[in-house]
Structures are given as C-alpha cells and as structure tokens.
C-alpha cells in the first residue's frame, strides 16, 4: 500500500497546475523511491517526467510498486478543495481502485477526506538516455516565463541561440520580429537572477512557443530553470524542487 504525507500540500497543487494542461491521464508510479510520472502530451511532441522523492514526504510508505492511473483534471479539481497550507496525505491499497486524499488544516481542527476513482492507463514508457548537452543555460524561471509569453505575441516558434556571451531568444512573424538576449552574468548580486551558461558548442534551435509557454506553468515550483540543448535532439527544460524535479522534453522543429 501507499501512504504519503506531504507537509506542504501546496506543492502538489502546483505540480498539478504544471502538468494538467499538457497531459490528460497518467500513471503515478509509486515505489520506495517516491512518486514518479512520465507521460507524453496528446500530440506526442512533448514529454513530462516528474519525480517527487520519498524524502519529500513524512512519512512515506510504499511496500510494493503501484501504478495509480489518474485523470489529472479530476485530481486537480479535488486538490482545489485543499487549502494552501493544508497537509495532504495520499493513500492507496495494493488492489486500489481509488486514491484517498486527506487534507488537514494547520490547526488540525478541519479534516476533509476525498476519494478519487482510478483508471487503467496503458501508457507507453519511453527510455530517456543520459545525454551530455552542447549547451546548458541556467536562468531565472520568471524571466524564462516572461520571454516565452512576450515572444508568443510575434510567432508560434522561437529560435534559441546560445553562445558563450549569452542566450538569444528570437521570434519572427507576420507583424514583425523580436528578440531578447540575456548576457551571461554570473557575478550579479542576486544569484537567483543570474544567467549561467555551460557551453561545449554554440547551438541554434527552433521550438514551438505554445509548448514552452505551457512548461512555464511550473514557474511557481522553482525560482530557477535550466534549458539543456544539443543540435537536433529534444530540449530539456528542468525545474528542480527540494525533493524532486519536473522535466519537460520538447522535440525541436527541424529545418525545411
């Protein structure tokens, strides 16, 4: 059986907000390592990989690996019934056809209990090879969200160019063009806002902005984001959390 108690229930609410528009149904794979999820979006252009490690829960108990098939829109609706400061406990039996959720307020005088029906999901699991990327950009997650949103005004896609000087996001469309360049600035006072670049080789890649904007729904989960790129392989956008991560992979747009 699974029993996982999350002191900061708001984290789970934010995680659901970060994935529910990209994916409809997914298996939460529970093991002694924690709770993981891997799923492609409906058009098979993007892949989401989520890990909530066991040490992020107190207590965490999972005797036997379990795949909990969940409709993410339904789960997100149930989670809206939890207060932001509530402690959330997830429970499921080994033969479970429901996921039990308990929300306790901080005064411990209001306890709400919900049960969400589970479903059988026959999802494809993809093997993601360890990749050494040609360019890794670490930057403020809020800045990344702003750039994607701003450039969406101009075009459906963005060209990302990374050199040792900086990273340039450019978009061209019917109404004109625009570009935002962030210079590498590791010495700034505010570490959280620094743009850091690890570069083996310059890269120039095109991606759909619609997906990138969708990925930025994870912004409330982390102040930093990393963009890992190599020519003609999927972009990895990673938001690291205290005990886990959310990774989005996006296939590039490849030249005509």
């Amino acid at each position: 059986m699974l029993e996982a108690r999350l002191q900061t229930g708001a984290l789970l609410k934010k995680v659901l907000e970060a994935i529910k528009e990209l994916i409809t149904d997914a298996n939460f794979d529970c093991s002694d390592n924690g709770i993981a999820l891997q799923a492609m979006d409906n058009s098979h252009v993007a892949l989401v990989a989520l890990l909530l490690r066991h040490d992020g829960f107190e207590p965490y108990r999972c005797d036997r690996s379990l795949a909990l098939g969940v409709n993410l829109v339904s789960l997100s609706k149930v989670l809206r019934c939890a207060g932001n400061d509530d402690i959330i406990t997830l429970k499921a039996d080994d033969t479970a056809d429901v996921l039990s959720l308990t929300f306790e307020n901080t005064d411990n005088d209001r306890i709400s209990e919900y049960e969400l029906k589970l479903m059988d999901i026959d999802s494809e699991h993809l093997g993601i090879p360890d990749t050494t990327y040609e360019a890794v950009v670490q930057m403020s997650s809020a800045e990344f969200a702003r750039i994607c949103k701003d450039l969406q005004v101009l075009s459906d896609s963005v060209q990302i160019d990374v050199t040792k000087e900086g990273v340039k996001f450019g978009a061209k469309g019917e109404l004109g063009s625009g570009a935002v360049t962030l210079k590498q600035n590791g010495n700034v006072d505010k570490e959280e806002e620094a743009t850091l670049i690890e570069l083996q080789q310059n890269v120039s890649l095109n991606f759909s902005l619609k997906y990138l904007v969708n990925f930025t729904k994870a912004t409330p989960l982390a102040s930093r984001v990393s963009l890992s790129m190599s020519s003609e392989v999927p972009l990895l956008v990673e938001y690291k959390m205290e005990a886990g991560y959310i990774r989005y992979y996006l296939a590039p747009k490849i030249g005509e």
Binding site: V45, L47, L126, G127, S208, Y249, L250, K253, E256
Partner: peptide
C-alpha cells in the same frame, strides 16, 4: 515554419 517532429522519434519505448 519548420515542421514539428514527434518526441517518440528520439526516445525508445521501454
């Protein structure tokens, strides 16, 4: 605009 490629062409099915 350049065509969008499926993510499945980059990762193998387990």
């Amino acid at each position: 605009t350049a065509p969008q490629v499926s993510i499945k062409s980059f990762f193998h099915t387990v």
